[in-house]
Design a protein around this nucleic acid. Sequence first.
DNA 1: TTCTATATCAACATAAATCAACAAAAAAGT
DNA 2: ACTTTTTTGTTGATTTATGTTGATATAGAA
Lengths: 251, 251
Amino acid sequence: MSKYEQDIRNAVSLRGSVSVSELAALLNVSDQTIRRIVKPMVDRGDVEKVHGAIVSTQTLADPPFLARMNRNKQAKIAIANIVAGMIKPGDSIAINTGSTSAFVAQALRQHHDLTVITNSTFIASTLAMVSGNRVYMAGSQLRNHDGAAFDRSAFETIAAHHTKWALLSASSVHPERGFLVQEQCEADMCAALMKIADRHIWAVDASKLTDKHLQIRLPAPIAGSTLATDAQPAPAYDRILSRTSIAVTAL
Amino acid sequence: MSKYEQDIRNAVSLRGSVSVSELAALLNVSDQTIRRIVKPMVDRGDVEKVHGAIVSTQTLADPPFLARMNRNKQAKIAIANIVAGMIKPGDSIAINTGSTSAFVAQALRQHHDLTVITNSTFIASTLAMVSGNRVYMAGSQLRNHDGAAFDRSAFETIAAHHTKWALLSASSVHPERGFLVQEQCEADMCAALMKIADRHIWAVDASKLTDKHLQIRLPAPIAGSTLATDAQPAPAYDRILSRTSIAVTAL
DNA sequence: TTCTATATCAACATAAATCAACAAAAAAGT
DNA sequence: ACTTTTTTGTTGATTTATGTTGATATAGAA
C-alpha cells in the first residue's frame, strides 16, 4: 500500500480516466513508479488499466458532487475536526446535507454510540455502518443534486425527533443579514433542525464569510450557538456573531 | 499514550498522509520516536503505516462491508452487467439491499431516466446523483450492517409504489426449498418487493447455489422471473427453476 | 499490412526509510 | 543522593521504494 494510492483513487474517480504521465506529474514521481503503485490496485479491482491510461471501475459519486467536495477541502477538514471534537459518545446530532457536513460525517466515524438524523443518503450511509450508531434517514424522495431529501416526510421525521446538537451550514454569511442559503427548502430544513436541537453548530468555511446576492435569510442563531470555521471572521461580523461562541482552527 | 498522539492524528486526518520526518520536525523529536509513537496507533487502527508515510485510515465505507463487496467480486460484476442489460431507459425498479445489488446499482449508473426505489442508503446514494433519475429511499431507521432500512415506514413506502422490475437476492438456493434468506425481515422485504413489481429478477451468484441450514424460505418465483447468475445451475435445480428464464454469463 | 510514436516492462543502481541494538538523558520511586 | 524505570537519540545493517536505461509491445495512421 502506497501513500499515493488515495490520491490516485481520487484523481481517477474524479476524472473518469487519467494518463500515467499526468499522475506522475501530479505526484512528482516517475511514470514507472505510478505503474508500480497502480498494479496492485488493478489486481485488487480498485481501478482498471488500459493502454495509455487508468480508468475508474466505478464512480462513487457524481463528478460535480466530488468537485464541490474538493473545493476548499483543507478548510472543510479542519472544520470537521473542530466539530468532531465537540461531539461526545452517546450524543445525538441532526445533520443537514452539504459538502462540509459530509466531511464532518467522515470525521464522526471515529466516534461510537451516536444517534444521528439526517436528510442526506450520503451522510446516512457514511454513519450508519459504524457499529453502535443509531442512524435515521429523513425523507424519501431524493434530489439528484446531492441525494438529499426535502419532501414532507423528511420534515415529519425530523419533527418527530429531538437531538442535543444540530449541524447547520449556510452558503454565505452577510455582516447584517446573517446566515444565507440559496433555496427555500434549505432554509426550511435549517429551521426544522434548529427547532429540534438543544445546541446549534454552524459549520461555515471562511470563504463564505462574504456577501452574496439574492439569497434567503435563515433564522438568527440563538445565544450559545457555535460557529466552527477556519479563520477568524472580520470585525464587521462582530455584531451578528455576538450571540455565538466561535471555534476556529488556523490552517 | 503519548502526548503527541493527538497532534499526529490531526496532522494525518488533515493532510491525508504525512511523512515520518515531517512529523519529527513538527514535534521536535527524532524520526525514531515518531515511529515508536505511531506503532501502537497502527495496532489500534487509528492510522495506517506505509513505507514512507503515515496515512489516514478513513475510508468511505466500513471494512466489513467492503469485505463483503469484494467476495466473489467478479461474479457479482458479471451478474450486474446482465441485469443492467435488461433495464431500459424510463424503466422503474425496486432494489433490495445486498452486495450484488450494490454492483447492479453501480452498473445502472450508465443508464438515465430511471425510477428507483430501494431500502439501502448506499444504493440510493449511488443512483440518486445520476441526473434524470427519480430515486426514493424507503425507510428511516437504518441497520449498522449495511445501512438499509426494514422498519414499518420502509414497507409502507414500498407498498405505495409500483414498478416494472424488482431486483431480489437470496443468501442461498436449495434444490427443493428454493430461495432462502437468513433473516425474517429480509424475507418480508423480498415479499414486499415482489408484490409491487411486474417482473422479478433474482440476482444470485453461483456460489450460493448450494444448500445451507436454518434459513427462511422465500415465496416461490412467479412464472417469467429471471435468474441472473454467473454459471449454469446443476441439473438438480431444474425443477425449482422451471418457472424462471435463466440468464447466465460465463466468467 | 508496415511504419511511427508512444506506452509498457524488466533489470539494475541509487537513494531513502525502517529496524534492532545500544547509549544517553529524563523521570519516578526509594 | 541513589537506583530503577522509562523515554529518547544515535548508529549501522537491512529492507523497501524510486529513477534510469534499454528492450519489447501496442495503438493508430499511412
